[in-house]
């Protein structure tokens, strides 16, 4: 039975990613609570998901860097059907990182209510250690000053 590093026992039922050699550094970073994404040295654009050839200009002169973990909600939906690992209602969102790339994620720490959720609302990363091996990048709202 898997358990997390804080000792709690879990039986996570949700779908787990299986990294490939190209994406392993991303998932390794998450386990260290760092959001690692790539930037192209040729065109200067950051991008996601990880791959060794830039999707903007096809250069292979790319490097990993640690993103801020801050961004805004680009769009979201509220699923009313439970799935393994997800009890409805839950929020699926696409977040646009401050560095530019967008990523699929879940919004947590907020009511799954269309009256509360807003596109463009500022969010920050939460590292969700779903198993001993896998940490997933989730996001929560940033309290506005």
């Amino acid at each position: 039975m898997p358990s997390t590093s804080d000792g709690s026992v879990t039986q996570y039922a949700g779908p787990l990613p299986q990294p490939t050699p190209e994406t392993q550094p991303f998932f390794d970073g998450l386990k260290e609570r760092r959001l690692m994404v790539q930037r192209c040295e040729a065109c200067g654009q950051a991008y996601y998901y990880p791959r060794p050839i830039c999707p903007h200009c096809m250069s292979d002169y790319v490097h990993w860097f640690q993103a801020s973990g801050k961004g805004r909600v680009y769009s979201f939906v509220i699923s009313h059907r439970s799935r393994p690992g997800f009890e409805a209602p839950y929020v699926i969102a696409v977040v646009e990182l401050d560095e530019g790339p967008r990523m699929m994620t879940n919004l947590i720490g907020i009511e799954p209510d269309p009256e509360v959720l807003r596109c463009d609302m500022p969010v920050e990363i939460v590292y969700d250690e779903v198993t001993l091996e896998v940490t997933l990048p989730k996001f929560r709202p940033v309290e506005q000053a």
Binding site: P17, Q18, Y49, V77, S79, Y90, L136
Partner: peptide, 22 residues
Amino acid sequence: GQFEAPFGTMGPPTLFSLPATR
């Protein structure tokens, strides 16, 4: 499988709906 499904996105209702919200 790595970058969408882990967030409970299985199925068109959860995916085709994102553009509508935006």
